[in-house]
Design a protein around this nucleic acid. Structure first.
Lengths: 156, 156
DNA sequence: TGTGACGCTGAGCAGAATGCGCAGTCTGTT
DNA sequence: AACAGACTGCGCATTCTGCTCAGCGTCACA
């Protein structure tokens, strides 16, 4: 979908002030309320705005450790079957099929470094994974920063 | 913060039905409206609920390509300085300092594979990065799936 | 056993926002 | 010139929110 600057301004408003109402946004942007509604509906329908939900932050409820694991899977199982098996493990936050030496990449949350070891063992116990190698996150500078990209897309 | 099952149910409700109102949630869960309000306030204040905002999805507005880049930085610059430089590039969605062979890991969005090359060139042009190696995402099975972990934490 | 802190409840009320519909206007395209 | 699409400004009934209050059960601690 093509987005314009008004779309980006609307998203920015609702991002910076989560208590924002549609009416208030229309006053700030000096457009009709129906316009803001229509833009939001359009962006939701087209998927430009995906999740607008309370995002639980693992680090805030006891899971401060994050790691990315590169997984090599059993050749007799497909990627989808493996990702379904991984989906049963709550500590697995994110799974991609990737290019390169590994087959899958998973983002893992854990309580401690040794708890991370336990989660890795649980993954290996599914018999779906042949080999894994992990990269531990030492510091997160930023994440989920998609608004600047939306604004860039709106400008050009 | 310690979360209980009611907290998890509240988050699940608002996740599954984004039009959910606090009043409606209190009716479904058969608790007082003030209780739902208090739980939401408590989870927001403690950071368990971080972002509750419209999350732009790059793939929906022209950036379907995702890659993870492992970066080696110039020794004379700190990680923070480099991440600040990267923050000026809208295609950079996420930056972590990581363990292992590389210094930083960045998540990049791009319009096409060759556009990804352009973004990598922009990153190299900052002179902050000595070397980069990329992993391209071929398929995303799921991401941002933190609710199961919250529910696991609520159970015990 | 007494006391207080804490959380949940049910209720009420004024103000605000929402969902919905409608007619008019503007703009770019065919 | 006609048309579709988007924006506007308006109104209305309904719903939700923010705020307050007193009452009640539970738990920890003195």
């Amino acid at each position: 979908m093509r987005v314009d600057e008004l779309d980006a301004k609307i998203v920015r408003l609702f991002t910076e002030e989560q208590r924002m109402s549609v009416l208030e946004a229309s006053r700030i942007l000096k457009v009709a309320r129906a316009t803001v509604q229509a833009r939001l509906d359009r962006m939701s329908a087209s998927g430009v705005i995906g999740r607008w939900v309370p995002q639980p932050e693992p680090r805030a409820f006891g899971f401060p450790v994050v790691a990315f694991c590169f997984l090599t899977i059993s050749q007799d199982l497909g990627h989808d079957a493996v990702s379904k098996a991984l989906a049963d493990i709550p500590e697995v936050i994110e799974v991609h099929t990737v290019s390169g030496d590994s087959d899958l990449m998973a983002r893992i949350a854990a309580r401690t470094n040794s708890d991370l070891q336990r989660v890795l063992d649980v993954m290996m116990a599914t018999k779906a994974i042949v080999r894994s190698s992990s990269v531990i996150v030492l510091n997160t500078h930023f994440e989920g920063r998609t608004l600047p990209l939306l604004e860039a897309a709106a400008r050009g």
